[in-house]
Design a protein around this nucleic acid. Structure first.
Lengths: 343, 343
DNA sequence: ATTAGCACTCTCTTAATGAGAGTGCTAATT
DNA sequence: AATTAGCACTCTCATTAAGAGAGTGCTAAT
C-alpha cells in the first residue's frame, strides 16, 4: 500500500515521539503535539491502518502505538529530517583528534567519541588490509630468538609484530632474507601474497644459505598472518546500553552483552557484512545476528588516503535518534579519515 | 574478643554456606548441615555474639546471618581451606598458553582465563617498566614524517611506538642521534632517565648537527613517555558481574561498571596500590575506591625473568569463593610469568 | 470523510491478608 | 553454668482485590 501524505505525517509523529520519550504514542498525543488538525478518532483510524500494514504495533489493547522495524525503516528512508552537529560537538571531536598522536590512541578515542556523543555503544573496526600494496618489509632481530617484523604499505599503514623463532638466524641470513622478500613483494597486494609461490620460485637459492625450508616458511607465514590485527576492535560505552529502558530485563541485556563481550566474534560478524558503504543503517531484524535483532546499527566506512580501510559504528536499541546517529557517525568517520591519512 | 573454637566453626559455616548459596544463613541450616551437635538455640546465641562483634549482620529481624567484611577477612585469614585446581582447569590454562605466541594475545588470554575460571571479572595490568635497564634503542624512519622507536630492555621487554615528527630528519641525523642516545642510555634505568641532563650535557655537540633543540627534545620526550603503554589493561568478563544476584539493582551495577569502563582510570587506581605482593586479597570496604566497596579484589604479581613486572587480578562481589579465587590467580600468575619470561 | 461519544480492555498502583522463616528472649533442663 | 525447648514477635514475600487511568475500537451522528 502506498502511504498517503497524512499517514506519513502520522507515522513520522509516532516515530519521532517514541524515539524521544520511549513511551507508546497515543492518538491524543499526536493530536495535541503535532498539529494535523484532525480529531483523535480520525488519527486512531489511520493508526489502525498503519498497524494493519505492519508499520506500527501496540503491546496491548489499550496502549499507544510503537513503530515496528518496518516503521523505522520507512521513517529512516523517507521521513527523517537530516540533523547537523552542534558546534560544541564538532569542536569536541576536533579537539580530541588534535591531541591524538598515536594510532592506538586515535582508534580508542574514536570509539569513545562515538559512544559519548550518541549515548550508545561505539565500535571501531581497525583498518583491514584492503588493496594495500607492500611498500617495504623490515626485519629486526631482538636478542637471539625474536624478530620484530615491520611491514609498511603504500597507504602508510604500519604493521608491527614480534615473532618468536625457534631456531637461530644470523644477521647475514636475516639481511639476505630481507632483501629477497622485499624484492619479491614490493608493490604486491598484501592480501594476495602467495607464500608458496615465492618460496618455491627460487627455492634453490633460498635453501642454499640455510637448509631449513619449513622453518623459514613458518616464520613468513606468521609475518603475513594479519588475523589478530585485522580483528582488532575498539569498543566503548557498554554502560550506555545497560541504562536503556528497553534492556531493563536482565535476559535481554545478557543477550546483547555476551555478544559484544567476545570482541573476536563481533569483529568477524561485522566484517562479513562490510562492503564499505558510506553510511549504512541496519534496523532490528534486518541484522543477521539474532543477538542484536532488537538493536540497530549505524555504520560508516573510513578511508586512509582515499582508500576504504575500515568501519566505525554505533550499536543501540532500535529506538534511537537515527538522524543524530547518522550525523555523528558521518562527521566522525570524515575526521578519522583525515587523521589517519596524515599518518 | 578472641573467638572460641566453636564460634570459629560457626563463622566458617556461615561464610561457607553464604558463599555457596547466596542466601542469609539461619541457625537451623547450620545445625542441619554442619554437624556441630548443638541446638539451634545455642547456635543462635553464638550468632548473636558474632554479630555483636561485627563479624556478621542480618538484613532484618527475622532473617539469617551474612558475613560482614570483617567476617570475610577473618574467614580468609584463619578459617578458609586451601583449594587446588582440578586437572581440567590446569590443562586448560596450559593449553591456552601453549598456543599464545604473541604478547598481546597472551595478555588477552590471561584476562579471559581469569574470568572464565572464576566467573568474575579478570583484569591484567600490562607490565610496567620497573627497574628495567635500557638494552638498546633503535630508530626506524618510516616515510618522511614518522619514526618507529623500539626500546629493548634487559628483561627482554620491547616497547614500540610510532612517533609523528613535525619536521624532517635525515638518515644521517637519525643515525647520529641513535648512536648518541644509545651511548648515553645503555644500561640506564628506564624510569630514571633525565632527558634534560642528557641533552644539556652535550648540548653543544648536539646542536652542532642541527639547530633544533626543542624539536629533538620533544621527540625524545615522546619516546620515553610510557604512560599509554603502562596503563594498558586487559579486562574480560563484564557479563559475569551483571549476572551476580548482588548486582541485580541497576544502580549498583552502574556504579561498578562505570568504574570499570574507564580503563585508564582503573589502571591508575590499581597502580597506586601495587606493591608487587605475591597474593593480595582486598575485601569490600578495604578497597579505597568507593565504587568497588562491595567487591573484593584478589591480585597477584607476575614476574618477567624473576623481576616483578605486573599484576593480574579478579574482581567480584565480596561474596565469592575466596579459596578457589586464590588458587586460580596464583596458578595463572605462575604460568604467565613462565610464558612471559620465555619471550 | 470526519468526528463525538461511549463501552470495553488492559496496566499500574495500593492495600490487605496470611503463610512462612527466623530471631530473641525466658524459663526449664542437664 | 551451659544448653535447650518453647513461644511471641518481626519481617518478607506472594497472592488477591479493588479502583483509577489511559487508550482503543466501534457506532452513530454530523
Amino acid at each position: 500500500m502506498v502511504l498517503s501524505e497524512r499517514m506519513k505525517r502520522i507515522l513520522a509523529a509516532v516515530a519521532h515521539r517514541y524515539i524521544t520519550y520511549v513511551e507508546p504514542v497515543s492518538s491524543s498525543t499526536i493530536a495535541r503535539e503535532y498539529n494535523l488538525n484532525l480529531s483523535t478518532a480520525t488519527i486512531r483510524h489511520e493508526l489502525f491502518l498503519l498497524e494493519k500494514d505492519g508499520y506500527l504495533w501496540h503491546p496491548h489493547t489499550s496502549s499507544g502505538r510503537i513503530p515496528t522495524d518496518k516503521g523505522y525503516r520507512f521513517y529512516v528512508d523517507n521521513l527523517m529530517q537530516k540533523s547537523y552537529l552542534s558546534k560544541g560537538d564538532k569542536d569536541l571531536i576536533i579537539r580530541i583528534y588534535k591531541k591524538s598522536k598515536e594510532f592506538e590512541y586515535t582508534m580508542k578515542s574514536t570509539s569513545q567519541l562515538l559512544s559519548q556523543l550518541t549515548d550508545n555503544i561505539g565500535v571501531v573496526l581497525g583498518p583491514i588490509v584492503y588493496n594495500n600494496l607492500v611498500d617495504y618489509i623490515q626485519f629486526n632481530a631482538i636478542g637471539n630468538d625474536r624478530i620484530l617484523v615491520i611491514i609498511v604499505t603504500d597507504t602508510g599503514l604500519v604493521y608491527q609484530k614480534i615473532i618468536n623463532i625457534s631456531g637461530e638466524i644470523t644477521k647475514d641470513n636475516l639481511n639476505y632474507l630481507s632483501n629477497y622478500i622485499n624484492s619479491k613483494l614490493k608493490n604486491k597486494d598484501i592480501n594476495l601474497i602467495d607464500l608458496n609461490s615465492i618460496l618455491i620460485d627460487e627455492l634453490e637459492k633460498f635453501l642454499s644459505f640455510q637448509r631449513r625450508f619449513n622453518y623459514i616458511h613458518n616464520f613468513l607465514k606468521e609475518c603475513f598472518n594479519f588475523e589478530y590485527l585485522e580483528n582488532k576492535i575498539y569498543l566503548d560505552g557498554r554502560i550506555n546500553i545497560i541504562k536503556k529502558p528497553e534492556f531493563k530485563e536482565a535476559d535481554k541485556l545478557n543477550y546483547i552483552l555476551s555478544f559484544i563481550e567476545e570482541e573476536g566474534i563481533l569483529a568477524k560478524v561485522i566484517k562479513e557484512d562490510i562492503n564499505f558503504e558510506d553510511t549504512k543503517i541496519t534496523i532490528g531484524r534486518e541484522n543477521r545476528q539474532k543477538e542484536i535483532q532488537n538493536c540497530s546499527l549505524i555504520s560508516s566506512k573510513y578511508n586512509i588516503r582515499g582508500r576504504p580501510s575500515g568501519v566505525i559504528m554505533i550499536l543501540g536499541p532500535t529506538r534511537m535518534n537515527y538522524s543524530r546517529m547518522v550525523s555523528v557517525v558521518e562527521y566522525i568517520s570524515d575526521k578519522l579519515s583525515e587523521v589517519l591519512s596524515k599518518y
